[in-house]
Amino acid sequence: MGSRVRVRNDMPPGHIRTPAYLRGKSGVIERTLGPFANPEQLAYRHNGEALALHRVRFTMAEVWGAAAETPTDTIEAEIYAHWLEPADAA
C-alpha cells in the first residue's frame, strides 16, 4: 500500500478498462484487490489471466494540470496490475 505508480501510456486497440485520461499519470496505490481475470482477454472469449487490481488515487493536479478545478481533490480508479509500473520508471 502507498506505493507510487504510473499508468502505462499505451493506446492499444480493443476492449480496455484503463481510462485514457489516466494513462501516463502517477498516483498512489490505495488498496489492492483481486486477483481478477483479465477483462481484455475475457472480452474476446478467452480465459483471462489472473491479475491483481489496484485502486490508485490520483490528485486532480496530476491528472488535469493547471486546468484542474480544485487541484487537491482526488480521483480513485481501479487499474489492473499489467497497466502499472513504478512511478520512478523512465
Partner: peptide
C-alpha cells in the same frame, strides 16, 4: 472526473473548498 464541483452544483450541492472531493471512477468489477 474533470469538474465534480460544477457537476455537483447542477444537482444543487455546493461544498466548501475545505471539503476534499474524491471521485470514484468505477472502472472494473
Amino acid at each position: 472526473v474533470r469538474e465534480p464541483r460544477r457537476v455537483l452544483a447542477e444537482f444543487g450541492v455546493t461544498l466548501p473548498e475545505t471539503t476534499q472531493i474524491r471521485v470514484h471512477d468505477s472502472t472494473a468489477d
